[in-house]
Amino acid sequence: MKLIRVRPSGQERTFGADELIVTKTDPRGILTYANDVFLRLSALDEDEAIGQPHNLIRHPDMPRAVFKLLWDTLRQQREIFAYVVNLAADGAHYWVFAHVTPSFDETGRVVGYHSNRRVPSRAAIAAADDLYGVLRAAERRHDRAQDAVAAGHDTLQRVLAERGRTYDELVWDISTGGRR
């Protein structure tokens, strides 16, 4: 089933601090489970979500470099945190603080990925939005996808080098509102 690209409406949706958005995918990123909070925020029915690639809810404002970093980290079987803006099927968007981890079977083999998402603070959203604006600007100067990813990645590394932080540390700096 081929989905028509949804046009962002600019309308923001949010969710409760006590709620968790949960999805599971197989190793290729195909959705195998989505909880009720995910379906509500994404304005999707369960049968519209399950079996679809996770980039079903990808928002055009998300820099490509962030997803590359996410997949590179997961392939090393490590957890990753990221601020992500998602696009609902009705054009609304919602910001999440995503924590993505590999799922292992008893033999230690990766059987899929699991994502828990929590609602971020306004300050964290503002900081992430600023950072992604910078990365997007770098990526949009390139036509080829791989050049864009490389440009976004370089820009991210430069920002981190200037601040003397790792990506992980930067994400946690934002999440604690600079409380350190």
């Binding site: 968790l20 957890e79 981890t101 699991h114 828990n116 992980d168």
Partner: peptide
Amino acid sequence: DHVDAFVRESGAASAAAAEGRFHRRFLTQG
């Protein structure tokens, strides 16, 4: 989902502490 989240958080937060990545705290939200 909540048991899953707790198990993942406790494993990852402890592993991070053992590696000296103390900036990674236990996410209690949710």
